[in-house]
Structures are given as structure tokens and as C-alpha cells.
Design a protein around this nucleic acid. Structure first.
Lengths: 202, 202
DNA sequence: ACCTCGCCATGACATTTGTCAGGGTCCGGC
DNA sequence: GCCGGACCCTGACAAATGTCATGGCGAGGT
């Protein structure tokens, strides 16, 4: 009995390559392949895959959000997140979104097929080292507002811009930034943004 | 007559997948596959590929530097850069390093095989849209020092840290930063770094 | 009802960052 | 031989950023 797969990755070439890799296994069949997160649920509803392989960075809807939608609409379809970044926060959010597997793109090639079969057998599949890192990073101590403000600094915007965009006063924005800097134990926004990102606090 | 290929990409899974994709073509044979830039030249010397497919982001030596080494040691081996980022500066530097092809990872899957055959036929292969963008971005107006300083801000370090790391005075660092901000027509380091990155000026 | 806590805000302050106007060396090209 | 430009530095100033003390409002918990 063959395992039906759905593949979601925004890079066409990679998607094609993964498809080629997976089709080498006799018990796998790629039944759907999409390039946007917001096409995942529809494609899954139509082709009824056993396992969905989702990249995180995708236009439309990211892989984590797509996983959540999928878990709701087709609980029978198991979700494996397949991503470039072994970030702690990604793993936590993947689990919260109902994923049962998490594979990073620099794992050895056999890992993927292996993970898919294990997931089909009802197991959860996670790199142990990454799981440890995730626990170490802990829950995000940032409040929703602090997250918003920190995220808004991404483009390099100044306090005034952020205040305008979020309808806050400049003083308030500075406060949140200050709080975020304190909580990340850093010395300025740029650093705070970087470590919050790494820890998956955004 | 089959085309012998060398594959270099730091992500094992992707490398395996690309290999699977390429092996589907009867006239292709992947004769070597490495995960670090500094292994490219040796592997090529040993296996004599006709075409080397190099990712840019790699540990040891990046794909562009590896291309330059390869062009020197095995001029018969044609280089195709295969990268995630269609950044203008990457393309320019790839051409300067002696690459004859440039393919982005979100191109349609057939593109790759096509590019390889075209390159074997003596043609250069570049996405026209990207080529236009590269010309539009122009040469980098940044001096070597301005590049250094701007690059050093990546981690979010302050002026004092950078000054220490580069053995410059704080005033000088501020000057270079100021110059870089002016040349990118932005309003602070973060923005300057972002646009310089996009334009391939680093 | 009271307390806590997240959220919003203010104003004052120290520090950091960006700008400007200098002045110095060294090198390659006209 | 002189000029221009990359490179290094200083010091002074304005603007942006980060910190702190303080207070009001609303929601949830005891």
C-alpha cells in the first residue's frame, strides 16, 4: 500500500527535486505539489494525501499556519514540516500547529523517507538536538505589543514611523523597545530583533 | 555522450534531491557531490565533471570563490551558479568569477536541465529579468572600508564594538557609516545595510 | 472590592548615533 | 610635480535612541 504525499515549497526547482527524490521510493507517491501556503488546504482536500510535507517560508500563508488549517480541515492528513532553519521557535510553533514531524533541509537524504514512514506508523519525528534547544529557549516572555513593535523595526524604520504605523505615541514605542531589549538581554534594537528571531519569540 | 556533473550545496537533503532530479535525464550523470565550497576544486580535479553546479551559501568557501578557483584549476569545467537568491550583486560577482550560467532555485524544474545543456553548447545562461536588475543596480559606490564597516553592523554591534574589531577610532566608524547611509539614500544603519544587501553592494 | 498585570501614555534624562567641518598620510595618473 | 581620491583621524553639534519614574485605564483573579 503506497503512501500518498503532498509537497508544498515555494521554490519550484526544489519542489521538483524533492519530488524526484521521493518518487524513487516504490511506496511513495506524490499526489499534489503546490507553491503557496494558501493552496495547501484545497489541494489536500482534493487529493487526500496521507502526509503533507510543508516548507515554512512560503508566500500567501506560511507553512505553520497552513499546518493549523490542515489539522482542522483534514485531521487524517499528517503534517511534517520541512524547513531550512532549525530554529527553536519554529519547532514549538510547528508542534502547536499540530505537526507530527519536523525535518531540516540539511539532514541526510535518507532521513526524509525515514521520517515519513515513521510518521505513518504513528510516531512523532523530531531531531533530538533541536528539541533540546527548543526547551532551552523557553516560552516567549514578550507581550503581544512588544512583539509588534520589535517586528516593525525589521525594515529599519525609526521610532516615529513605527508609532505612526501602530497608532502609538513615540514614548510608548520606546518603552516597548526598551522592554524587549531588557528581556533579550541585549543592548539595542538590532540585537534584540536578532536574538528574539533566533529564539522564535516572534 | 553523457554530461558529467558536480553538485555542491551545503544542504544534504537538497543535494540528494537535486541529484535525483538530474539523474532522471538519461544524458546526465552526477559524478561528484560535496557539501562545502573548499571541497569543490579537489572533487572536480578527481572526477573531471563537464559542468559544476554550485550553490552560493556554503561553509568553508562560498560558491563564488569556489567558482574562481575552479576556473583557474580546471578551465574546461563550466560553472553554473545555483542559488536561492536572485540578488543583483550575486550575478555580477558570479560572472566576474567566471561562471557561465546562473539559475535561481525558484525557477521551473525543467530550467535546470535546459541550462546545463545550453551551457554545454557553449552558451551563457542567465535569467533576462535578473540581468536587467543587475544592470539597474549598477556598480557598488561603496569603498572597501565602508563595506567592512557596514558588514560589521550585521550582528547589531555598536560603534565601539566595530571600532575595536576593525582597529579604527569610533569617529571614523561613524564617518563610514554616515557615508554608507548617504550613498544608499537611507536614514540609518539598519536601512543602509538592507538596501546595500539587496543591491549586492556587499 | 481589591490587587495585579498588561496596555497606553508622558516628560525628563543619559547615551548613542548621524552629520559636518576640519586636517593628516599615501598612492596613481595626468 | 601636482591633483584627486581612498583612507585615517579629531572634535563639536543635533537628532535619535534607550532608561526611568510616574500615572491612568480595563480585564481577570482572589
Amino acid at each position: 500500500m503506497t503512501i500518498r504525499l503532498l509537497l508544498a515549497d515555494d521554490q519550484d526547482l526544489i519542489r521538483g527535486a524533492l519530488s524526484a527524490l521521493l518518487e524513487l521510493e516504490e511506496d511513495f507517491e506524490v499526489v499534489a505539489s503546490v507553491g503557496r501556503g494558501d493552496q495547501v488546504a484545497d489541494a489536500a482536500a482534493e487529493h487526500r494525501p496521507d502526509v503533507a510535507l510543508l516548507d515554512i517560508e512560503m508566500p500567501g500563508l506560511d507553512g505553520l499556519a497552513a499546518a493549523a488549517v490542515l489539522a482542522k480541515r483534514l485531521p487524517a492528513c499528517r503534517v511534517v514540516i520541512l524547513t531550512t532553519f532549525g530554529r527553536a521557535g519554529y519547532l514549538r510553533r510547528a508542534m502547536e500547529a499540530g505537526a507530527v514531524g519536523f525535518v531540516v533541509k540539511d539532514a541526510p537524504p535518507e532521513t526524509l523517507a525515514d521520517a515519513i514512514r515513521r510518521v505513518m506508523a504513528g510516531q512523532r519525528v523530531v531531531d533530538p538536538a533541536l528539541a533540546a534547544a527548543t526547551l532551552a529557549a523557553g516560552e516567549s516572555p514578550l507581550t503581544a505589543r512588544e512583539r509588534d513593535v520589535l517586528n516593525a523595526t525589521r525594515s529599519g524604520a525609526g521610532v516615529a514611523d513605527i508609532a505612526a504605523r501602530l497608532y502609538l505615541s513615540e514614548g510608548t514605542v520606546r518603552n516597548y523597545l526598551s522592554a524587549a531589549i531588557a528581556k533579550t538581554a541585549t543592548r539595542n534594537r538590532a540585537e534584540a530583533l536578532r536574538v528574539a528571531d533566533e529564539r522564535g519569540w516572534l
